[in-house]
Design a protein around this nucleic acid. Structure first.
Length: 264
DNA sequence: TGACTTGTTCAAAT
DNA sequence: GATTTGAACAAGTC
């Protein structure tokens, strides 16, 4: 479930493995993966070019090839990248395989095929046209508060709404609200500034830490709900209550009713 | 067998 | 009209 920290780690991965290599061939084995482009168009456009840089916005990753040519990745639920140096066996399940001139390759692997790959001209225009909010790590507290405070929906749904702010998904939203001791169904417009401040601080803290650890869950073991997505567990901090599961905003939401205050 | 998972999108409801 | 809610989708797991 690639959320902001995972996508940031994919960005680092590309930068460490795949920049400035001439592209020799492109294989698309799952055309459904493509968004707004065709196999032929993707191949024709990428072959002969090279990746010059990358940029992440929310859960989207953009690879710049040249001015007005960016490769777009969205990883859906199970998408990820795999790089294979020359001579290493490549993953045959790759939905998209980019072969470089030095015979190394980069694969987009996506078992459940919910990811998307596309070509776009301008990243800022794309974000604007699609209406995505500011990136969750770029937004400052003032704008965060401004964008959220008038909403009447619950805090969890809002945090996950990519048009309010981009990058937070189901799992990280649970962790942010757990650390903030705030019930996911709390109504935003009932929250005071102190509480919104707390959510903002926890969001930034958790995302930054996760990015610093390259989204490696093993290194985030002090983050309770990222590690244990289960109901009926004893809440570790202080309250000693039990964790609960409830569908909120159409998503499985884990929380502790004992220490996450519900404000309605 | 079918219920459940996720992010996104679009339709329906408020 | 704007905002909010919820269902659908895809496909793999259990």
């Amino acid at each position: 479930m690639p959320e902001l920290p995972e996508v940031e780690s994919f960005k680092n991965y590309i930068e460490q493995t795949s920049l400035y290599k001439r592209i020799k061939d492109v294989t698309v084995s799952n055309a459904m993966l493509l968004s707004g482009t065709s196999k032929e168009c993707l191949r024709g456009t990428l072959i002969g070019n090279m990746m010059m840089g990358s940029r992440r916005h929310g859960k989207f990753l953009f690879i710049r090839h040249k001015k007005d040519l960016n490769l777009l990745f969205h990883f859906g639920m199970t998408g990820h990248l795999e790089y294979f140096p020359k001579g290493e066996p490549i993953n045959k399940n790759a939905a998209l395989l980019i072969l470089f001139k030095d015979d190394s390759s980069l694969a987009f692997v996506d078992r459940r095929r919910l990811g998307k790959v596309g070509l776009i001209k301008n990243v800022d225009d794309f974000i604007k046209e699609r209406g995505y909010g500011p990136d969750a790590l770029q937004i400052d507290e003032k704008e965060f508060t401004e964008r959220l405070k008038s909403k009447r929906t619950n805090i969890k749904t809002a945090l996950m709404d990519q048009k309010l702010l981009a990058g937070v998904g189901n799992e990280y939203s649970d962790e942010i609200l757990f650390q903030s001791r705030l019930h996911p169904e709390s109504r935003i417009n009932k929250l005071n500034m102190r509480l919104l401040h707390r959510v903002f601080e926890n969001m930034q803290g958790i995302l930054k830490k996760a990015v610093a650890e390259n989204a490696d869950r093993r290194k985030l073991s002090n983050y309770f709900f990222l590690e244990h997505r289960k109901a009926g567990l004893t809440c570790p901090p202080k309250c000693g209550g039990f964790t609960a599961l409830k569908t909120i905003g159409g998503r499985s939401s884990y929380f502790c009713p004992g220490c996450q205050e519900l404000i309605k």
